[in-house]
Amino acid sequence: MPEIHTHEADEHDSAYAGLLVNDAHWAFGTDFEDPLAGVDTTVPEGIDAHELATYCLRLGDDALILSQRLSEWCSRAPDLEEDIALANVALDLLGQARLLLARAAAADPSLVPALPEGSPVPPEDALAFFRDDREFRNACLVELPNGDFAETVGRILVFATYRLSLFQRLTSHPDAVLRAVAAKGVKELTYHRDFAGRWFLTLARGSDESRRRLEAGLARTWAYRHELGEDDEAELVLEQVLATSGIAAPDVRPISTGGRHTEHLSRLLAEMQVVARQHPMGVW
């Protein structure tokens, strides 16, 4: 440990005192840590490991791609409070993605792309940064461009409502890891739905322009929501939010995606993966 030269003790030293000390009191740890470190990841009897892994990958990809989209709002939101709130939602989803991708990799390591011998890239990052667009399993809803704030609010409302309903059911899933991820996610998604719901009402009742933008934005995302699965409970919640806001459900037919992604995903991944792919042997 090199000696640190300091001036006479005064208030300056406090901010620097710990810089060369390796302590573990960091929000995200000082070294790379498997997000599932210390957790028993044995797949329970009677569950198909590959199926569980691909299911987790789908849920993880939804969270990862929407998080990537929402983080595009950073420094661009309508006001500082919304900038902070959208970053919170993005951070929560990123946290869910990390756990789910790590769960998928632990359940079925064959899903993780092969990297050069000796690469230090951990499985969650191999999955996030070294798969091509066609290997991503997310719904098209999350990869669409953000649009304006109203469109973003509509998308978060639809996504969080469906996912909350699903995560509530997953809290009794036979896999203990998925169960724990769902239990944590329920609290987060409740906040996301509440945030979007409040803004939905505000924009619906605010000005003519906000109402017009809300309706236009909702129509774009509404046509993709069927990809999130059939869920009467989620539909009921959405109906209530729309009714309270005095907004009619958009008269749009589900878009036929043919199980393929939109043109937007490849570009999103190009940005997300560029640095990681330049350094397959890099440590971050």
């Binding site: 983080s71 919170n88 940064f129 997300m272």
Partner: peptide, 29 residues
């Protein structure tokens, strides 16, 4: 820094950077 959130080379770094830039918004507030 914010323009690098989208290109952060690991998910852990992405979380750290996003949280950091979010803090700056809080400081401004």
């Amino acid at each position: 820094e914010g323009q690098w959130i989208g290109r952060a080379p690991s998910l852990r770094r992405k979380a750290i950077l996003l949280a950091k830039v979010q803090d700056e918004a809080g400081h401004g507030l």
